[in-house]
Simulated assay, not measured.
Amino acid sequence: MVAGETSGDLLASRLLSGLRPHLPNADIHGIGGPKMAQYGFRSDWPMEKLSVRGLFEVLAHYREIKGIQNALRDALLLERPAAFIGVDAPDFNFGLEAQLKLAGIPTMHFISPSIWAWRGGRIKKIARAVSHMLVVFPFEEEIYRKAGIPVTYVGYPLAEVIPMEPDVAAARAALGLPASARVVAILPGSRMSELKYNSVAFIEAAKVLAQRDPSIRFVVPMAGEKQRAYFLELISKAGLADVPIQLVAGRSHEAIAAADTVLVASGTATLEVALFKKPMVIAYKMMRASWHILRHMGYQPWIGLPNILAREFVVPELLQDAATPQALADALWSQLSDDALRSRLRQRFTDMHHSLLRDTAQESAQAVLQLIGKRLT
């Protein structure tokens, strides 16, 4: 198995929670994180080596990442595992899966790339690489069936983990936040490249809000100590060390649950925020050269998963030059100030939550066991 970042580690752990009881003695290894390790997963390389986003950012680390891919490929071709499962990280995993599948090793990919949002031509590449696709959104099944790729809809794993009615009071108590305060959670991303481009604008937005209402509390979860140190370095260099933010180690779900609204970098975290029924402002910045290329590759108007699932802009998206501190602060302030809007979003996200509920652990485990020729007992 290969997962390339924090969200992939969490998603893969859900699959492993269903699979491990049926394969208690299997050697499950590759690249992954601490949540996968809880189910006896052995990581051959640190997961952080793959946590790079953006065309030019990846190029800067290309030699190292390609070296890891080649070394893992060579080891697996010798080992000939019962199956290889790539968890997200499509640019790394599809290349690896294609070579393994060609050699007769069954390959599964967990979580479809957003071929329905951009780069739709990838379906042919996926067909060459993947023996079986696990998808987390119901509309994705038809796309793969039409392309002749075996597919199973397993539901969105975090729809089972996140409660239908989050306990706001308990989350605030756990984080030491006042029960009656207005709370903004800020999630600039878990990748170092995301922190590089998002952190300063996000914290400058917090500074604007704090000037409007000094009682607002800001909570910023960090994925790890390396991310925390880099984040603090970035905001210190930008002269923002005095902005009253509360950094927490991990605990992103508690931070989201405690919040009245969330400023979140585009990605899977946006859907987590929706499952917590929270208003959000989706924002994203990246290297300018990457942006000029990627902005022409989309063929639908949304990038945030809640908006894509809703097929409309239910929450604002502010990207690249539009993601100014003032614009971010204004959008967050509107959500903090509009009780009717928060109520509408809560209902919309509750309906979305119900639509994504399946027994993901068992559905995905059954698909894996069928792929390797075993049955659930």
Rank of each mutant, 00 (worst) to 15 (best):
V2F: 04
G4Y: 01
R14D: 11
G18N: 12
P24K: 06
N25E: 15
A26W: 04
I31M: 06
G32I: 06
G33Y: 10
G40C: 11
D44M: 02
L55F: 15
R63V: 10
N70M: 09
A71W: 05
A83G: 07
A83W: 08
D91C: 11
L102E: 15
H109C: 11
I115G: 04
A117P: 07
W118L: 13
V136R: 01
F139L: 12
E141M: 08
I143T: 10
P150E: 06
V151Q: 07
Y156L: 15
L158E: 11
A159G: 07
P163Y: 05
A174H: 06
P178Y: 05
P188D: 13
P188Q: 05
S190I: 08
S193V: 01
N198I: 11
V200M: 12
F202W: 11
A206W: 04
K207V: 03
A210H: 15
R212F: 00
P214E: 12
V219T: 04
F231H: 13
L232W: 02
L232G: 03
A238M: 12
P244F: 02
L247W: 11
A249P: 08
G250V: 10
S252D: 09
E254C: 00
A255L: 03
I256Q: 02
A259C: 09
D260C: 08
G267D: 10
G267N: 09
M280R: 04
M286H: 02
A289Y: 03
H292S: 09
H296K: 13
H296N: 15
G304P: 03
V315R: 02
E317W: 03
A323H: 02
T324S: 14
D330V: 00
S337N: 14
A340H: 12
L341H: 14
R342T: 12
L345W: 02
T350E: 15
L356N: 03
L357E: 11
R358S: 12
T377F: 11
